[in-house]
Design a protein around this nucleic acid. Structure first.
Length: 865
RNA sequence: GGGCAUAUAGCUCAGCUGGUUAGAGCGCUCGCUUCACAUGCGAGAGGUCCGAGGUUCGAAUCCUCGUAUGCCCACCA
């Protein structure tokens, strides 16, 4: 038997145990049980493990370990995401250190560079997942740009293209001038902005003394204006419709048009129309056949379509200059403060530019219906249910999904253009044009949105497009666990693609958890410096402590989790507690002195144990991770350790002890896999706990009568301890105890428990009587359910203190009695409440009344003495 | 402009389907080197369950309104 330190030290143990699990193939699917598959949300290859991942992977690991112990055929598929823009940014930054850009390398060399980078650093996140204890099957590890995933992407693209569900068209899209690419709508973040509303004067061409006032938040875009618009029914401007204004700072004339889009109430009711730089204006422009004049390049610098003075200026510099110039010319009418939203790139946070350009789109509006129906019908459920609302809101108002990105790292769009004008979309690279036979084919330069390959993850990782055995066995997967922040990015698109290509949604259940925040509820981020590094926490407290903390905070409502170091510390202490129970067991096994018979404490803990099994099961079935963790914490610490072990020190029944403690290890294993595995081995159990059977509750061991008796015993011990503490009886001093108990059942329970009472309340002599000739003098007194107790004191009793104690007690009972009396006096309560509720109230009243009477008598006795 | 969520002890939160003596962890007070554990043990203090109405025999729990906070969505310059 190996030595165990007093303090649990996880670091060496965790590394050793994980290596053993992995080496032994303990994570591989096996057995004839039901298939139970989960795909891991693939973290970015560029990433390091953050608290979000820690939660995202702890929760499924709990489920996966649980199902494995239940005998299911469990597959948890790990993998990483190529994370197009993010990864490209990282590698570009690295190049920048040597003063190089990706253009210096050229596309091919640059991509090679990224692959090299991925080989070298991409393993960091997966090694960190191992630190966390994630029991995923590494043999199934995938990468969104590996061979199989790439084939799946092409297959899907080509199929959708053929059906017209993927197309290329000019649209106003979200353009990031820093990343030089288009973004989808979900990749844009909005931020409150204390901006200005500038009122500009557009002079009438026919009479420059007159002018229209146009309100805008973006004066620099005026160079792209190709009209100003008013509402067709706006009386103020009726006679101006069809006439022209002079575009300020230029020598252009642009028409005044009428369009219902204009809000008469807003500003002056006159809008500048800039079709190339605003979504709404683009629509207006189309209706009125206005030209769309782009005035910016892809970096957000003004181009040749503006007066020379502004050409090459950054958009914000150009704004300043334009405003100065307008003011000088007397064309700046007024300026107002104006609150609006500013859109930013979710990657680099640069300000997004609405930009007219041809891009590739998935026609989501045509694909969405089955995905909505799957959830409406209940075939696919969100937990908690309210998240389905977010899903519906998104899916029922879905727009075209812009999937082309003007970067280099990613799945290249499988479309080629022939010099004859033919467009070829193919799964395999075409050599010649099927129409003209030319071999001068140029592939589309763009790559796909990273989320395009993520959308296929549940089936691409299982071997599709081949008719793979894994796909057949594990699709649809059992469930998905993820944060609410990617319902739109990922969940909705996986459901859509799963239904389109597999005819079934990729999972039946979506378990949504909250987001990790710092202690004060602030979003964790590197820039604010409040991010907690899970790897650091694991180093300091152990992976089990971190996992236990995260699970205990993942409550039924799915609220955000505020992570405080004090909580991890508390979990660490709990691990230490368990560790020390194990040390205790080992000591006792070494002593080899056991009781032959089960004691009342044994019966009691066995009964409680059955209930904790049931509670744990039901918590897991409902994804109430917090309930599971807290339920086990409470059972282990407050029942098993505080009462059962303490009582067992009088005589330990080996079988009961080991049954319950091994049961605890198994129940805790999904939460805290390392320490339970280590202790499992130390106790000499066969095999590993990771492969052990999940405990089954045995109803025959439920023992309500024993629990009731034990409740009285515990109440009595607490009462004695309370007296000792309050009356300052020295802890080492053995006291006497006189119990006055007229209830034979209670008397029996207490008699039986005499050794426990002596052991746990520091009492030597116990007298139990049905009645007393005279109540003891100079004794402190308390009343419990069915009995009253006296603790004679050496020194003269502190009358004041004793009276104060009893008065407090009396008042408490009085309050309760009054409450219940009122309730019972209420006629409608008696008439309408269920009989068992009334019965319960009456019983309570009786108990309180009895206690009240006893305390009152005692007070009288004290007063008389 | 829509929607969602939250408001319970000093702090962070449980309390899921109305009946609890309203709980936990941390913190606080008092006392303990009790032979598994001071990362511990024992005993305590601490709560108008955000406010106002309502439903009900009964509300922290359900409904309405309000206040505060957080988040998401939305093309009004």
């Amino acid at each position: 038997m190996s030595e165990m330190e007093k303090v649990y030290n996880p670091s060496e143990i965790e590394a050793r145990i994980y290596a053993d699990w992995e080496k032994s193939g303990d994570f591989a699917p096996k057995g004839a049980g039901e298939p139970f598959a989960i795909v891991m949300p693939p973290p970015n290859v560029t990433g390091a493990l953050h608290m979000g991942h820690a939660l995202d992977d702890t929760l499924p690991d709990i489920l996966v370990r649980w199902r494995r112990m239940l005998g299911d055929n469990v597959l948890w598929v790990p993998g990483t995401d190529h994370a197009g823009i993010a990864t490209q940014n990282v590698v570009e930054k690295k190049l920048a250190q040597d003063g190089r850009t990706r253009h210096d390398l050229g596309r091919e060399k640059f991509i090679e560079e990224v692959w090299r980078w991925k080989e070298e650093y991409g393993g960091r996140i997966t090694s960190q997942l191992r630190l966390l204890g994630a029991s995923c099957d590494w043999a199934h590890e995938r990468f969104t740009m590996d061979e199989g995933c790439s084939r799946a992407v092409r297959e899907v693209f080509v199929e959708l293209y053929k059906k017209g569900l993927i197309f290329k068209a000019p649209r106003i899209i979200n353009w990031c001038p820093r990343c030089h690419t288009a973004l989808s709508d979900v990749e844009v973040e909005y931020e409150e902005n204390a901006g200005k509303l500038w009122h500009l004067r557009y002079q009438l061409a026919e009479n420059p003394k007159k002018y229209l006032v146009v309100a805008t938040t973006r004066p620099e875009t005026l160079f792209g204006d190709t009209a100003v618009a008013v509402h067709p029914a706006d009386e103020r401007y009726q006679d101006l419709i069809g006439k022209e204004v002079l575009l300020p700072l230029t020598d252009k004339k642009i028409p005044i048009i009428a369009d219902e889009y204009v809000d008469r109430e807003f500003g002056t009711g006159v809008v500048k129309i800039t079709p190339a730089h605003d979504v709404n204006d683009y629509e207006v422009g189309k209706r009125h056949k206005l030209p769309a004049l782009a005035i910016m390049d892809t970096s957000g610098l003004l181009n040749e379509n503006v007066p020379l003075r502004y050409k090459g200026l950054d958009r914000f510099k150009a704004r300043e200059l334009a405003l100065t110039d307008l003011e000088e010319k007397g064309l700046l009418d007024s300026v107002q403060d104006y609150e609006n939203k500013i859109s930013r790139c979710y990657r680099c946070h640069d300000v997004i530019e609405p930009y007219l350009s041809p891009q590739w789109f998935v026609d989501m509006p045509k694909l969405a219906a089955p995905a909505v129906e799957a959830v409406r019908s209940g075939r696919l459920k969100f937990y908690p249910e309210r998240w389905s609302k977010v899903y519906f809101d998104w899916m029922e108002n879905i727009r075209e999904w812009c999937i082309s990105r003007q970067i280099w790292w990613g799945h290249r769009i499988p479309v080629w253009y022939c010099e004859c004008g033919e467009i070829i979309c193919a799964k395999d690279d075409p050599q010649t044009c099927p129409k003209c036979g030319s071999d001068k084919l140029t592939q589309d330069a763009d790559v796909l949105d990273t989320w395009f390959s993520s959308a296929l993850w549940p089936f691409s990782t299982l071997g599709w497009p081949d008719a793979a055995a894994d796909l057949k066995k594990y699709y649809p997967t059992a469930l998905l666990v993820t944060g609410y922040d990617i319902i739109t990015f990922w969940v909705s698109r996986m459901i859509t693609m799963g239904l389109e290509f597999q005819k079934e949604a990729p999972f039946h259940k979506v378990v949504i958890h909250g987001l990790i925040r710092d202690e004060h509820g602030k979003k964790m981020s590197k820039s604010t410096g409040n991010a907690v590094d899970p790897v650091e926490l694991i180093k300091e407290y152990g992976a089990d402590a971190l996992r236990f903390t995260l699970a205990s905070m993942a409550t039924a409502g799915g609220q955000d989790l505020k992570l405080a170091a004090s909580k991890v510390l508390a979990s660490r202490n709990f691990m230490n507690k368990i560790w020390n129970v194990a040390r205790f067991v080992l000591l006792k096994l070494a002593d080899n002195k056991f009781s032959a018979e089960k004691s009342p404490a044994d019966e009691w803990i066995l009964s409680r144990y059955q209930q904790v099994i049931q509670k744990t099961d039901s918590a897991l079935r409902n994804f109430y991770f917090g309930d599971m963790a807290l339920g086990l914490y409470d059972f282990v610490w407050n029942e098993f350790c505080d009462w059962y072990i303490e009582m067992s020190k009088l005589g330990l029944h080996k079988e009961t002890f080991l049954t319950v403690f091994n049961g605890i290890l198994r129940l805790l294993h999904p939460l805290t896999p390392f320490i339970t595995e280590e202790i499992w081995a130390k106790l000499g159990n066969a095999g590993k706990v990771i492969n052990a059977n999940w405990p089954q509750a045995d109803k025959a061991l439920l023992n309500p009568a024993r629990e009731k008796k034990m409740a009285v015993v515990i109440e009595l011990i607490r009462a004695v301890r309370n007296i000792r503490a309050e009356m300052n009886v020295a802890p080492a001093k053995k006291a006497d105890l006189i119990i006055l108990c007229g209830d034979p059942a209670v008397a029996e329970a207490l008699t039986e428990a005499k050794p426990y009472i002596q052991q746990l309340s520091g009492v030597e002599k116990i007298d139990l009587a049905a009645r007393l000739a005279a109540k003891p003098r100079n004794a402190s007194h308390a009343v419990i359910n069915g009995a009253e107790i006296f603790v004679p004191l050496d020194k003269l009793i502190d009358l004041q203190a004793e009276i104060a104690r009893l008065e407090k007690e009396k008042n408490k009972y009085q309050t309760e009695i009054n409450r219940i009396k009122n309730k019972l006096a209420n006629k409608s309560f008696i008439e309408k409440a269920p009989p068992e509720v009334i019965e319960k109230e009456k019983e309570k009243e009786k108990d309180y009344a009895e206690k009240f009477k006893i305390v009152e008598e005692q007070l009288k006795a004290l007063a008389a003495s």
